[in-house]
């Protein structure tokens, strides 16, 4: 693979007037990085994404599942069985197929691995905030 390239962005934006000391960063797209480098393993939590090519399902699953995190994944395909197959093998608490951030508040929300413990949403949250007690009565 050729070296790292910033395809667009990569810099702070300096605006004028009252915004001259504001915190602005250009939306940034990077390609040419290996899947296991720190930029591709650690959470940046900003307007920075990387592009990486893949050849097979197996290969992309190994890349996708290679981080310590397991919150959400997005999958784009028109192939029904591939969508089910890949969704089933992703180590993420939430998988969106052909959409993103489509939320039904009843569904379990949360991550696997280092992305968290437990789920929020729907009755999951009401169960979390209550304690169960079982009472057994002999007839």
């Amino acid at each position: 693979m050729k070296g790292e390239t910033i395809l667009t962005g990569g810099k702070r934006i300096h605006l004028g007037g009252i915004h001259s000391e504001g915190y602005y960063i250009e939306p940034t797209i990077i390609e040419g990085l290996p899947h296991d480098c720190r930029t591709n393993q650690e959470e940046i939590f900003g307007p920075v994404v990387t592009l990486q090519p893949f050849d097979t399902e197996e290969e992309v699953l190994s890349y996708a599942n290679s981080t310590t995190y397991g919150l959400a994944a997005t999958l784009w395909t028109q192939h029904l069985t591939r969508a089910h197959r890949v969704a089933g093998k992703l180590h993420n608490g939430i998988v969106w197929v052909n959409c993103w951030l489509l939320r039904d508040l009843r569904t379990p929300f949360g991550g696997m691995k280092a992305s968290g413990v437990g789920r929020e949403g729907g009755f999951e949250a009401l169960n979390f905030f209550t304690e169960e007690k079982n009472i057994c009565i002999k007839l």
Binding site: N92, F109, A114, S115, G118
Partner: peptide, 8 residues
């Protein structure tokens, strides 16, 4: 209940 980071 912990909702933590991601690298999606």
């Amino acid at each position: 209940s912990l909702e933590l980071g991601g690298k999606n």
